[in-house]
Design a binder for these strands. Structure first.
Length: 813
RNA sequence: GCCGGGGUGGCGGAAUCGGCAGACGCUACGGACUUAAAAUCCGUUGGGCGCAAGCCCGUGCGGGUUCAAGUCCCGCCCCCGGCACCA
């Protein structure tokens, strides 16, 4: 049995299991973090990527970005902003559907269960989300507006159905967007992707390619994000040039970024899939060889074609020749799989002197190599420098620099009607169809007479029918296709029989606009009120994973620009600032995964150490932007800090001022933490606080004024312990309602400071000087030090460098 | 191959308008408390030499600039991420 004293002592001990649920309940009851409708206040919109509520629940990677922006959101509230920090669920998607199929439960049920689990886990971590604004992409009241946006895209000609080869994952039985194919495999399951021809809904994102690049200038995204987006869109500027095919009325159109090298084009290469082969097959003398090559190329996946790129292969189209429009010479035409039908025109002019691929090909097949830009040795390798080269062997271009030659030849081509300047993109249109059940139905009806007809707005949302069996089919048809009573409907236009589109939308649909819905989540007349959108947008700070840079981030910027064009939103970019967190790895330095058995569940950390410890550790663990391994020892260290922090109550003394010995340190720490929280440097902010607490313990007491400041500074990271200590100390009101502390720049510098004294650049001692002290004073102090005398006596001082507050270096000879 | 980021103690990481490298935390070791252990507290913890004062070496490698280089310049090596026959 514990004694009365021991029980009493225990009640004063830091007990997160008692205070954390207490404060979470308090915040919820009081609506502490409800976003206000007071639109006269300055606003701050903090956004994290809403999670996919998987069956596995949260792992410790999730809270890293959530805590980071929670810190910023809490700080902003204390600075007087009206803050929107919302949360929701990106809940459509394959894992849920697959689980539902396997366990014969409706995906709706699985989703609800998973959301409930996630919600309970997130709530236990004390985030200051405004839970009243929760959105769920699978909620018909939400996806009604996803469908509405799709119809607007359709209306504006940005959604179209197209027969095209798609990336098919044979394991998931689903078509994939280019962005979802990683190294030739399915992003989700890793199975090798096949090519299938399917009639697919496509979104014309390429129409926005230029703006998606150019408007990156308007936003504050970390550089690696901007670079990756530019890279992915892959804009390249050049020219299209038409080459006559001899003795036919065919022209072979090519795209090139080096029109200046036109005089060096000694042959042409077309893709094996190029339509000209069929159109002119009667003229091709070696048609069987050509067809054989074409068959071989077809069997290779796009991945194989790229991976086995080293060795060039190809077949000449015998019987066909093209004319180089600049030289007037006849040149051969080849087919080779290094030319892709999916980029440019599917045909190139080959300039072996100045393109590495063409050079390799020419060497292999003994084709002529002509130098048209001086500076290299085209017999040894292709010369590709465009900075310093001067044109040669190029008629009217001779003597020009590359950049000037490009302009001149493009003008000439335009005058002659042989070509024109042209911009190409690597970005392709977005394959928007998925042949699965658990997604938003595409709200279109096909009518024999009227074609594709949109479902009238007032009939939205188009709901998913209840089905017995939503297994995918091997034929690539959506499971919805089997439900005839759902498919068969009437055409809204002519009233005749019509059939519903059975493809559903990809997971990226709902997440492309969710941040708009948060501004007005319960509106059933519009996706959100204009007034709300205008006040809250753009998002001030959006943090998310690098893995979403070429998918979600690009897609949502595209949708937003479209919504801007049709007047729904008033700003061309959705996100003002974008940052990215690093992954949290397992203790063994490997990616956390169930199969590796190194997953850490936040529930266990909360149960053992408390939510504040978890939050503190997640922020202290290392550089926020880098991957870092988890360490349970590190977690314990953070808990120890909170225990020590709690005990500051025992040494608190009255007084609202900062004490003499700690005043400078407090001002410095306020400054450091205020700045570090804004710059993703949570780890050094926390280190500074730990250092200050160490200093306080050295002093042996803390004034109430000091403790208040400290509680406010730590509150965004560890909200529960700081709320509890505030009320226990009997401070007025609540810590979360207090204003953020200010620092006085003049008080951040110590009156006197210890600086190193160097002799010939090596530290030989230390002196304590005030900032106003002169070099004479420094010399006097330094010479009182035996060690410095030892290194200088008997030598002449040649030079003295004295930087006040930094260093005193004596150069002797 | 191209683009971006990075190499600092036993570990995570601090410090870049050039100014005492290793803040803060962890680990390890030693000590106090305890019958004992845990917890907590105190001390040590880059390597080497020295009884000590102190000295020498040290930020991926090789050069250089400077009174002074983790930080700047030149030439390399390695790791991580993205793109990859994009004409």
């Amino acid at each position: 049995m514990e004694s009365v004293e021991e029980v009493a002592a225990m009640e004063n001990r830091y007990n997160p299991h008692e205070i954390e649920p207490k404060w979470q309940g308090f915040w919820e009851r009081e609506g502490t973090f409800r976003t206000s409708d007071d639109y006269t206040k300055p606003k701050f919109y903090a956004l994290i990527e809403f999670p996919y509520p998987s069956g596995e629940g949260l792992h410790v990677g999730h809270p890293r970005p959530y805590t980071a922006l929670d810190i910023v959101a809490r700080k902003r509230r204390m600075e007087g902003y009206n803050v929107l920090y919302p949360i929701g669920w990106d809940a459509f998607g394959l894992p849920t559907e697959n689980f539902a199929i396997k366990h014969k439960v409706h995906p709706r049920e699985v989703t609800e269960r998973n959301i409930a689990r996630f919600k309970q886990q997130l709530k236990s971590l004390g985030f200051s989300f405004d839970w009243s604004r929760e959105v769920d992409t699978t909620d018909p009241n939400y996806f009604k507006w996803t469908q509405w946006i799709f119809l607007k895209l359709f209306e504006h000609g940005l959604a179209y159905k197209h027969e095209m080869p798609i990336n098919w994952c044979p394991s998931c039985k689903i078509g994939l967007a280019n962005e979802e194919v990683v190294n030739g495999g399915c992003e989700r399951c890793g199975a090798e992707v096949e090519t299938r021809i399917k009639n697919q809904w496509m979104l014309r994102i390429t129409a926005y390619a230029d703006r998606l690049i150019d408007d990156l200038e308007l936003v504050d995204f970390i550089d690696r994000v901007k670079v990756q987006q530019r890279n992915w869109i892959g804009r390249s500027e050049g020219a299209e040039i038409d080459f006559d095919v001899v003795d036919t009325d065919h022209k072979l159109r090519v795209f090139t970024t080096r029109p200046d090298t036109l005089f060096g084009a000694t042959y042409m290469v077309i893709s094996p899939e190029h339509p000209m082969i069929d159109e002119l097959k009667d003229r091709i003398e070696n048609l069987s060889d050509v067809m054989e090559y074409r068959e071989k190329a077809k069997k290779k996946s796009e991945f194989e074609r790229a991976a086995l790129a080293k060795d060039k292969t190809g077949v000449e189209l015998k019987g066909l020749k093209a004319i180089n429009p600049a030289t007037g010479q006849e040149i051969p035409i080849w087919i080779s799989d290094y030319v892709l039908m999916t980029y440019g025109t599917g045909a190139i002019m080959a300039v072996p002197g100045h393109d590495e691929r063409d050079w390799e090909f020419a060497k292999k097949f003994g084709l002529p190599i002509v130098e048209v830009v001086a500076g290299g040795d085209v017999e040894k390798e292709a010369y590709t420098d465009t900075e310093s080269g001067i044109l040669v062997n190029s008629g009217f271009l001779d003597g020009l620099e590359v950049a000037d030659a490009k302009k001149k030849v493009t003008n000439w081509l335009e005058e002659q009607g042989l070509g024109r300047s042209k911009v190409n993109y690597k970005l392709r249109d977005w394959v928007f169809s998925r042949q699965r059940y658990w997604g938003e139905p595409i709200p279109l009806i096909h009518c024999e007479k009227c074609g594709w007809v949109p479902v009238p707005e007032e009939q939205l949302p188009v709901l998913l029918p209840d089905v017995e069996n939503y297994e995918p089919t091997d034929t690539g048809e959506s499971p919805l296709a089997n439900i005839r009573e759902w498919v068969e409907t009437t055409c809204p236009k002519c009233g005749g029989p019509g059939e519903r589109e059975t493809d559903t939308m990809p997971q990226w649909a709902g997440s492309s606009w969710y941040f708009l819905r948060y501004t007005d989540p319960h509106n059933d007349e519009a996706l959100a009120r204009k007034e709300n959108l205008d006040y809250w947008l753009p998002v001030d700070w959006y943090n998310g994973g690098m893995e979403h840079t070429t998918l979600h981030l690009l897609y949502s910027r595209f949708w937003h620009k479209f919504l801007y064009d049709i007047g729904v939103v008033s700003h061309p970019e959705p996100y003002k600032k974008r940052t990215s967190h690093g992954m949290i790895l397992g203790e063994n330095n490997e990616k956390m995964s169930k199969s590796r058995g190194n997953v850490v569940n936040p529930d266990d950390i909360v149960n053992q150490y408390g939510a504040d410890t978890l939050r503190l550790y997640e922020m202290f663990i290392g550089d926020f932007e880098k991957a870092v391994p988890w360490s349970e020892d590190g977690v314990r260290g953070c808990r120890r800090f909170l225990d020590r922090f709690w005990k500051l109550q025992e040494i608190a003394v009255p007084g609202d001022e900062y004490s003499k010995e700690l005043e400078t340190k407090f001002h410095r720490t306020i400054k450091k933490i205020s700045e570090d929280y804004e710059n993703l440097k949570f780890n050094t902010a926390i280190a500074a606080m730990m250092a200050l607490v160490n200093d306080i313990n050295d002093v042996g007491q803390i004034t109430h004024g000091e403790l208040k400041t400290l509680l406010i500074l730590l509150n965004p990271v560890a909200p529960h312990i700081t709320e509890e200590m505030w009320v226990r100390m009997g401070f007025p009101g609540y810590v979360h309602a207090h204003t953020w502390p200010k620092w006085d720049p003049e008080k951040t510098v110590e009156d006197t400071v210890a600086i190193a004294v160097q002799v010939n650049g090596k530290v030989r001692g230390e002196i304590t000087v005030s900032l106003t002290d002169t070099v004479e004073k420094a010399r006097e102090l330094a010479m009182a030090n035996d060690n410095i005398v030892r290194f200088t006596e008997g030598k002449t001082i040649v030079k003295e460098i004295y930087v006040p507050g930094k260093i005193y270096n004596i150069v002797v000879k």
